[in-house]
């Protein structure tokens, strides 16, 4: 059986600065695997480890960054047997529909996939939509908010964590599910796994190898820094005087 885990490479928000015109400057940013995508990878790595003959494939779409060898090793040291990336300049800026089309085509081209999992939402835009859209485009059973995932007799048993209840469902394969950030804690890869990761296969596909154009449907009109409140930023030590001042600051407001 083949399982695909989708992950997005995102810039570290703490390092984003904004240029004069308002667009973000990502040039100085370190890139990382979306924090919540790690939970999705872990959830299926655990399933794959329990199955005989299960191939776990990590899949991403993006610009040049998808070829970064440190990030490739990082994902491959967390359980997947191989990695597939679709690379195109456009994909760094594509909307969730364009990304979903690319991922759906990539899953079709891998062939014979039974399950695709997604994180709860990406680290940067966090629209929480790529999984739902990809599942719908594949025409598969599609669910989000999955907080527990098991494979029982060739069928998924999932728990969905909704605002006012949790529900249990059985889902026939093939299926596309987006899991919550607390489904499980991602592992810390051991040195041995990191070394092994360097030898695992990875494939980079160009967009024109797939039957889609990567063009966005929803247009981003602008992306600008949000204006921030001005704060005094007085910082003191926790000595007697500092604590007196702290108490006075709080008293002023009550």
């Amino acid at each position: 059986m083949k399982i695909v885990a989708c992950y997005k490479l995102v810039p570290d928000e703490n390092q984003i600065s904004f240029k004069q015109q308002g667009m973000p400057d990502l040039s100085a940013c370190e890139w990382q695997i979306g924090q919540y995508d790690l939970c999705a990878i872990e959830a299926v790595a655990r399933i794959a480890e329990k199955q005989d003959d299960c191939q776990l494939i990590a899949l991403t779409a993006g610009a040049d960054i998808v070829e970064n060898s440190k990030l490739k090793k990082s994902v491959l040291s967390r359980g997947p047997h191989e990695m597939v990336a679709v690379k195109d300049e456009k994909l760094g800026f594509a909307d969730s529909y364009a990304v979903a089309k690319v991922l759906a085509e990539a899953v079709e081209s891998i062939g014979d996939v039974s399950l695709v999992v997604f994180g709860e939402g990406s680290g940067d835009v966090y629209a929480q939509q790529v999984g739902n859209l990809t599942g719908a485009l594949l025409g598969w059973n599609t669910l989000n908010a999955v907080s527990s995932l098991e494979l029982v007799d060739g069928e998924l048993v999932v728990e969905r964590n909704l605002e006012d209840c949790t529900e249990t469902l059985k889902v026939a394969l093939p299926a596309a599910v987006s899991v919550t950030s607390n489904i499980c804690l991602p592992r810390l890869a051991s040195m041995k796994e990191i070394l092994k990761a360097g030898k695992k296969p990875s494939t980079i596909k160009a967009l024109d190898e797939l039957n889609t154009d990567g063009v966005s449907r929803v247009e981003t009109v602008s992306l600008a820094a949000k204006s921030k409140a001005q704060r005094d930023c007085t910082v003191v030590a926790a000595d007697d005087e500092g604590l007196e001042r702290l108490a006075a600051e709080i008293r002023k407001m009550i």
């Binding site: 529909y97 966090y126 929480q128 939509q129 859209l133 964590n161 909704l162 449907r217 929803v218």
Partner: peptide, 23 residues
């Protein structure tokens, strides 16, 4: 904008060939 809402929005948007404008 609930979890079920997000799921349905994604499925509806895919049928119309577009993205969801969320949040």
């Amino acid at each position: 904008q609930s979890r079920n809402g997000r799921l349905l929005a994604g499925l509806i948007a895919a049928a119309f060939g577009t993205s969801v404008q969320t949040d």
